[in-house]
Design a protein around this nucleic acid. Structure first.
Length: 725
DNA sequence: GCACATAGTATTTTT
DNA sequence: TACTATGTGC
């Protein structure tokens, strides 16, 4: 006793220690960026176990990503050793899946349900629309899915939805929603939202289940509480209702998932939900330099709806933030690559400490191409995920129909892949025959001789039946990893992948091998686990989960994925109106504020070096022009250093001499009037250059003046004085 | 029923 | 720009 406390005490400041050692009752930790909030959560769990005699069985910690869960587990292991194994640390979704499987007999779902990822769910939804004679082209299934998701997030079922549907589109959704739920049920499948929705339903309907879980999880910790949606809120508050030992950590300034139903109100009203709750503020930042923190605070202070916090840092002042203005996306990428090379050369920065962030995945392309050309090793987090690749999903579909023969989406996926001569006509016949016998198509394959089909299709169907039988035997006789390997071969997926062009098929083949290796590794770590557990884990996997942070490469990812991470050097690219803030959020103040928080999250990822870049023109669809992001004007001038990047020039980092690149600009006599510069006009006062055209006598300068708005000026005559800093 | 070509369309973030 | 869906020709 006391050992752990002695050990951790010197590592914590007063507020952190206060949070860590508050054992009982509701606790709200309002934590700023870089204040060590996940660490506090971890230490608190360890404290409960080591100092308060709480059994690890009685603690539940919920996070949003597997990565966060794993990190917490690893850290705890070093504090309390093997005891972590008995503590439940999971994501919301995997926790829900676990509860639903455990109480499968009470949900009408059984234990062997399949979880549909977004792609599967949309495919099923589209099917429902076709069934109902609703043209999927007139109303995009993805949009319908969004509406259904947001209904489920609010615990609104098909009936309630129908009752309140007002708009034209709501009414269409109301028609599809019940059918979609029915078909999910028929397929013994759940979508992501269902995991939470049905768990809350279960806890509401079965008080005995609720009570037993309340008694089990006497201590509950929730990370990133600002990102919880209504169902997640209900889930944790129901679980905590009895003992009220709930500790939530969050930062309203980092709420960036509002579009997905996250309700910032949850954290704002926590004190009302749990009266007598203790509030601890963690306002000391341990991550960033003063300069970076100052810039971040200034940006986010432009938001109206927030719990105001004053972040402070005892760290060094640090270098100025570099603002790189570039011509287009290619030169932006070039400037990023130049700066990366400089960081590596002059600062001896490891590549693993450098991240390039962007708003949309599409932006990674240009950067990727440039890094490739410059031989700068990189890795991309996100984009097309491994488990979303076609050959992988095809292989998994074979595994899924064996584990859950009712899974109609997986069946449709593989019924004619590889090609067996089973087209739309045959598929319809199979489904009709199955329905008439009250079987799923896979079950039908095991009992039917195919006599309801024409000869060619019959052969194909019998072939498929043969595959199914072999897979069932293989599953019975082989350990999971060998079974997966066998399945890839038996199904014909491997052979199919080998056809087609050589480079493509080589990489597909590698992917299949990687899948086998992944199962193998999973089996080693979970020797008793069945293949179904693996299937569940990978559908609930996220991009960041698979990110190897120790690899000596530069990391590329979206701003969203970067939340919770930190890097010595960060580039935030594409700081343009329409991109950050994104065009889809321009018309609502609320959405703009969320974009601003996204920018804030990006800035606060950086420890020492921050680079902001934007392109004066960017190829998006057809055209071209872009204006610099309004958020740049919210950065305090003295935290910035402006650099106008030119193609193929080299770009100074902070500690190199202050010389601007001059190779390409020497002919430009107005180069001091670069985009982004602050200027003062004798009549109109201070303003900022937002665009310019030309580099000769007729150069036009576009200035946004602080008091009089936007003006276009001829550089030759405009008496602009550059405010230098 | 299949494969290929062409046209049209959709482009934010993701558990 | 890139992918998908549809249509056409076999």
């Amino acid at each position: 006793m006391g050992d752990l406390l002695e050990k951790i005490r010197p590592q914590l400041n007063e507020q952190q220690l206060d949070a860590v050692t508050t054992a009982d009752g509701p606790l709200l930790i309002l934590a700023g960026a870089g204040s060590g909030k996940t660490r506090v959560l971890t230490y608190r769990s360890a404290y409960l176990i080591a100092e308060c005699g709480v059994s690890p069985f009685n603690i539940l910690a919920v996070t949003f990503t597997n990565k966060a869960a794993n990190e917490m587990r690893t850290r705890m292991e070093s504090l309390v050793g093997a005891a972590v194994r008995d503590m439940q640390v999971s994501t919301f979704h995997s926790f829900a899946a676990r509860v639903l499987r455990r109480f499968g007999d009470k949900t009408g779902l059984g234990r062997d349900f399949t979880i549909y990822d977004e792609e599967d769910a949309v495919a099923l939804l589209k099917q429902c629309m076709v069934d109902l004679n609703i043209n999927p082209k007139a109303h995009s299934p993805r949009k319908v899915k969004e509406y259904i998701s947001s209904a489920k997030d609010k615990m609104i079922g098909p009936d309630a939805y129908k009752a309140t549907a007002a708009s034209f589109f709501n009414k269409i959704v109301a028609e599809i929603y019940p059918r979609y739920q029915q078909r999910l049920q028929d397929s013994s499948a759940l979508d992501f939202d269902d995991l939470l929705y049905r768990t809350v339903q279960l806890l509401t309907a079965c008080t005995d289940v609720l009570e037993s879980l309340q008694n089990k999880y006497r201590y509950i910790m929730v990370d990133e509480y600002q990102d919880t949606n209504h169902t997640q809120y209900l889930l944790v508050s129901k679980l905590a209702a009895r003992y009220k030992n709930i500790c939530v950590v969050g930062d309203d300034d980092q709420s960036i998932y509002g579009w997905r139903g996250a309700d910032i109100g949850n954290i704002l009203k926590f004190e009302d939900d749990f009266p007598g709750c203790k509030v601890v503020r963690l306002e000391q930042n341990y991550r960033s330099t003063q300069t970076i923190l100052r810039a971040a605070s200034n940006v986010v202070s432009n938001n109206c709806s927030r719990k105001s916090k004053t972040l402070f840092s005892k760290g060094e002042l640090g270098d100025k933030i570099i603002l790189l203005s570039t011509d287009d996306d290619a030169s932006e990428a070039g400037a990023v690559a130049d700066s990366i090379e400089d960081l590596i050369r002059t600062e001896k920065a490891p590549r693993s400490g450098i991240a390039v962030l962007y708003r949309t995945n599409a932006q990674s392309r240009a950067i990727e191409e440039t890094l490739k050309k410059r031989f700068i090793p990189y890795t991309i987090v996100g984009g097309i995920r491994f488990y979303q690749r076609k050959e992988i999903k095809d292989s998994l579909a074979y595994l899924k129909i064996i584990s859950n023969p009712k899974d109609i989406i997986s069946f449709r996926r593989i019924v004619n892949y590889p090609s067996r001569g089973l087209g739309n006509v045959a598929l319809a016949a199979i489904e009709a025959e199955a329905a008439s016998k009250n079987l799923s198509p896979v079950e039908l394959a095991l009992v039917s001789n195919g006599d309801f089909l024409r000869s060619q299709a019959r052969t194909g169907f019998l072939q498929l039946a043969g595959v199914v039988r072999s897979l069932i035997t293989a599953k019975r006789d082989l350990p999971p990893d060998r079974y997966v390997e066998a399945a890839i071969n038996i199904s014909g997926v491997r052979a199919e992948v080998m056809t087609g062009d050589a480079i493509e098929s080589e990489s597909r083949k590698e992917n299949l091998d990687e899948l086998i290796a992944a199962v193998k590794e999973y089996c080693q770590q979970n020797p008793t686990a069945a293949i179904e557990a693996f299937l569940e884990e990978i559908t609930l996997y996220t991009d960041v989960d698979s990110w190897d942070e120790s690899a000596d490469v530069v990391t590329l990812m979206t701003l969203h994925s970067a939340k919770g991470l930190e890097f010595p050097a960060v580039f935030i690219t594409g700081l343009e109106e329409g991109l950050l803030p994104h065009s889809r959020s321009l018309d609502k103040d609320r959405d703009i504020e969320e974009e601003r928080r996204l920018f804030y999250v990006g800035i606060t990822r950086a420890r020492n070096h921050l680079f902001l870049t934007y392109a004066r023109s960017r190829r998006r669809f057809a055209s071209a022009v872009s204006n610099e992001s309004r958020f740049l004007a919210e950065l305090p001038a003295e935290t910035l250093r402006f650099v106008s990047a030119q193609k193929h020039a080299s770009y100074p980092t902070q500690n190199m001499s202050a010389s601007l690149p001059n190779t390409a600009v020497s002919a430009d006599r107005y180069r001091h009037l670069a985009v982004g510069r602050w200027v003062v006009h004798p009549t109109w006062g201070p303003g900022r250059i937002i665009a310019r055209q030309g580099a000769d006598e007729s150069t036009m300068i576009d200035v946004m003046f602080q008091y009089v708005g936007r003006k276009k000026l001829l550089a030759k005559y405009a008496d602009l004085e550059v405010k230098d800093y």
